[in-house]
Design a protein around this nucleic acid. Sequence first.
DNA 1: TGTTGATCGTAC
DNA 2: GACGTACGATCAACAT
Length: 907
Amino acid sequence: MTEEKKSFYLIDGSSYIYRAFYAIGRLSNAKGMPTQAIYGFAQMLLKVIRERKPDYICVVFDAPGPNFRHEMYEAYKATRQKMPEDLIVQVPYIKNLVRFHGIPQMEMLGYEADDLIATLAHWGRDQGLEVVIVSGDKDLHQLIESPFIRQWDTQKDRVFTEDEVKEKFGVEPRRMGDYLALVGDSSDNVPGVKGVGDKTAQKLLQQWETLDGLYAHLEEVSPPSVRKKLQENRELAYLSRQLVSFKEDVPLSREIDSFVAGEPMKSELFKLYEELDFKNLLETLRQSWEDFQEVSSNTAGEGTESLRRDKIIRDEKDLFRLMEEIKALDCFSIDLETTSRDPMRAELVGVALSHADHHACYIPLNHSGKEAGNQLSEKVVLKALASVLSGEKPGKVGQNIKYEWVVFKRHGIDLKGIVFDTMVASYLLDPGKHSHSLDRIAAEHLGENMISYQEVTGKGKSQIGFAEVSVDVAAEYACEDAETTWRLVPILKRKLKEEGFEDLYVSLELPLIEVLARMEYQGILVDVQRLETLSVDFEKALDREAAIIYDLAKEEFNIQSPKQLAYILFEKLGLRVVKKTKTGPSTDVNVLEELAGEHPVVEHILNYRTLAKLKGTYADSLIKLVHPETGRIHTSYNQTVTATGRLSSSDPNLQNIPIRTEEGRKIREAFVAPPGHVLLSADYSQIELRILAHYSRDEHLVEAFHAGADIHRRTAAEMFNIPPHEVTPEMRRQAKTINFGIIYGMGAFGLARRLGISNKLAKASIDRYFDRYRGVKRYIERLIEETRQRGYCETLLGRRRSIPELQSRNYTLRQQGERLAINTPIQGTAADLIKKAMIDIHGALEKSGFKAKMLLQVHDELVFEVPMKELDVVRNLIREKMENVWELRVPLKVDMGWGENWTLAHP
DNA sequence: TGTTGATCGTAC
DNA sequence: GACGTACGATCAACAT
């Protein structure tokens, strides 16, 4: 039996960095950072690992700073130092990539990668290893030594042995140095002998063996032209010879075992790929974990205990024992399995609970089919659960536990004592993330891959309801959720604390969960008949408009298709193309309004668009979402979506119900109060500008708010240098646009377009504004600088959003970063304040036993349903809580209105 | 048949 | 390229 030689792979890291950078076209992540070198490097690295499974491996990099080659040759330095800016930023990521894969890496001051590779290759050969140099560079061919040392070019997927080199260059590897000394190497700025190419060099070396041999017989060289070149460039040839030779005196004090690859750091890799937006590598990573887990569970056998111990509760004895156990605890995690993602429609299928790492229980309730076996009745389980759920103690933790709150509420249980929500915690740690789903959080913070919902229920046509899932599979899935949530709590808690988010979390976001849950559960009453009438009216109007449009266009087409519409307008009717989108000419409202005078059809298309929007997005879809039992609409408030800290609303989105046009307000009229009640709307007046005044301490702004002035009128007066009473409506309108523009970081171009004025005039207006409001100017400048330095910006209550864009070398991106840095503290602080007001108001209403209920939040507005009898008192209570929610340098002002529907309630 | 990205429009 | 934050309807292209 012959012993297989162990392999030693030496990866020429520095050359791959360059090759990947130039080989792949521009690639960047969402933040605009260039990533192509990292990507190409990762592909190469994975190829080596997967295809060759090396026993020993090392990635070798050039050390920064000069080495002997620089001293020898000035020009060498010139090209070597010029690494492009876009590549420099990628290098640290590449080194991390290698490190996270558990692969040893080396660089040594005073040496280039080639020197280390030469040293290591010979060292490895002497240790009896089969050495493979992973590189495409031909100067490394010198090291090839069959059968001990080979070279693999992964990009061309070609392996070089002595024979291959000989065939390609006409010289054996050991004479490659002589060959390169003659030919030169433009990529490394090795000069060689000018005028001697590969053919001449091959011929010369075939004849005279080596460079020394050649020069020793220089007189005999023919033709004379070549001889002349060699004569003149003798020094350059020998210099080149030295430049391409390796310095093999690298001090090595490593044991062979230090070149064994370690375990990949899964969660670090996951985070890295995520930051870089390497979608397919993320997928591959997931896949490899799954494969690994399958292999290890298949081979684990009976002797090895599985990681998770799940228990399925099927009888009362176990159930009661579990409840007793839980009662004695400090806290536990809970996760419901149901028939719907909508908590207002969900029926219970099972309950998973966990209070110890890697342990969880599953209580099946309503699994269907006779294979489901014995299940406790929903009634019994709910009753037992109520004993631990409806008290403050023990504390409850969950992933999006608002969902559980609403489902339990519908089943008669008031969930109390919410002490942690992993989704909300993850959000505070990085509100810029696009998902705070449990599987993503687990991947980030635990480096674990979870069973997906789709793996359990299937997808597409063969998808089944959760109740149809077998109890065993359901238990495994649900227990994983519950116990993963449980294990995440201490980790996230520590991170919240480290980042100083404790207060924001405990005093704001956590108490807000129940407030939002109650708002969702309460819902808002809708006059469905009214919506249906509106829908029919809109439909009729749409038909009329469509008929006119088809007539004018002399053709029927899909008006809702931008592509078909563009064809009609710009090709058939020959209208001007005002603006272009990625895919063709734009047909948006600005374009159509500009074209309105040029063809009668345009006006009708605008009408059609408006009507289609009102009918489709509002009337019809709102009707579909009215709850069959409550007759109300129960929106979902999402607490973990926006980058600034605002809430968002969905299914339906009640934060974008029309208000600006009369037609649109008809939709709003369908939101009504029940008999004996009114809808009360309370909105913060100019909250964002007040926050700007607070932060900037701008003299004029602060004074204006203290004086209770009409802020836009005041701005107009400042801008036009006239007394406020002389401000015309047009002036006020312009000032208002500028005021909003400031908050959004608008530039001259945007303002010009918005106001329909020249770029120059817009620029002058903005300059004028900052001249009048010096404090604002100073504030914005300091804010941007601070944000750039810290990498994030902060709201009044300490919420943070990281803004890496400000550190970008890309101008557009940096500009974008400036706008985010300006807008986020303002928008985010407004969000902080109204959230706190919501908590305060809810507490006050509950404490005093009012029947009034908070129903909606629309960023700066709160909508309540108030019994007529309570109106006067509750009105004052709400105003008081909102206006005094926080002490700023300017007063907060609340406008209120009430009436039987939402339109009437608007002040 | 379902998924995804682009376009459009509504709100604050 | 040019104004921040969302959600959702529809279309068109593409994957299954």
